[in-house]
Design a protein around this nucleic acid. Sequence first.
DNA 1: CGACTCCTTGACAGCGTTCAACAGTAGTGG
DNA 2: CCACTACTGTTGAACGCTGTCAAGGAGTCG
Lengths: 229, 229
Amino acid sequence: MLVRINANSTSAKPPVPRGLSALTGEAALWNDHKYSRGAQIFWEGEPAEYIYQIGDGAARTYKLLSDGRRQIAAFYLPGDIFGVETEELHRFSAEAIIDTTVWIAERHSMFEGPDNGDLAYTKSALELLQQTLQHVQNQLLLLGRQTALERVAYFLLEMDRRLKKPAVIILPMRRRDIADYLGLSLETVSRGLSALRDNGIISVESQRREVILTDRTKLAQIVCGNANH
Amino acid sequence: MLVRINANSTSAKPPVPRGLSALTGEAALWNDHKYSRGAQIFWEGEPAEYIYQIGDGAARTYKLLSDGRRQIAAFYLPGDIFGVETEELHRFSAEAIIDTTVWIAERHSMFEGPDNGDLAYTKSALELLQQTLQHVQNQLLLLGRQTALERVAYFLLEMDRRLKKPAVIILPMRRRDIADYLGLSLETVSRGLSALRDNGIISVESQRREVILTDRTKLAQIVCGNANH
DNA sequence: CGACTCCTTGACAGCGTTCAACAGTAGTGG
DNA sequence: CCACTACTGTTGAACGCTGTCAAGGAGTCG
């Protein structure tokens, strides 16, 4: 829960994040905050007063059931915007996965009046919403109809793409987070990674958060249900 | 695949659907089409040239995997609007579940130019998009983290709510559709319904598409993970 | 070094799927 | 009207994927 308002950033004055500027206007108030690992950023049901963009680090949004079952809706990586809602309340909780710097700007109310809205803003929000929708709709098929191995492969390819296909993928999240994202147990995630490793499709570094995709083609085939069994 | 353009509607000239009028303008061209049971309305990947509203009947949108696994994204009931996309292409396929009348209107391009857009339209689209997003986000938790019985109970309550809590729920879809919506096998759906029936929570009519919810409270408890086992 | 967290791996159980048989319903045509 | 067929849904039995429980290894940090 350590939240520190960072008046004098350690880095040089950063550029206003492009995504946020479109959503808030150039002159909007914004700040960068630092959240330590595991810190809550906002809660489901809380008024959605701000919108957020990851500077460094990573965040997760999730829902909980009363008995503790958790479904992670999305991971957010540097540059990603989150917390944008069309209603007044947040529909998910959000936490920092690791120590994370977040740019925070005041949220525009989206439906203020008949012609009080800002078209550019609404369009930005629409684009963002549409991105979110696409992502979630892909998750549907994944969670509803794909096997454990297919889900793990999908996850690796998604991270690979979103991190711009680096030589080594450095995962900010733990196995438990991956499991709650994919609707699996953490053991099954671990077994999936081991299976891919044993088949020479990926290579897991000793730190276990670093993964190298040695055969993206085979990985993609697995996602599409063409595991060669 | 029987599609008939219905120039002279059997019923009196129907009112322009409220949802569609906001999305197309009062003077927009529209028609009602009839789709027979199982008929394709549009395909995933097809240009999204129209938007649709159910008059009578029901429709399903879905994605397929190459090996035939299907995930149904949503069911559409009388009054529901579907097929609205923010991009140029449909992201799901759509079929009529039963013989269905659909109102069809031309789609506005959503991002035509810098200030060429229609704010009222964009707002309508935004609201619709937001509804869709909420629905899908609830599905995430359901598919990722809930048990078979919880999913079946959730489905019944969703249909109950959307059909305005009738005395008897008349389901337009088959067990297979419910299964593909909930990420289960059709046998498991059937067993879930039987279990609820045996516990006196629902009553299934002999036609098997008609269900009476005799204990909505218990049903809601099951959805939240409070099955008294 | 010791305590802690995170991850892997194994053994086993259970939930849900698969396979199969059967029953009820609807549609068709004689 | 009935026979025939196709389709849909239910139920049982066995299998198997994934979850649960448990032990141990590996890395981190005080």
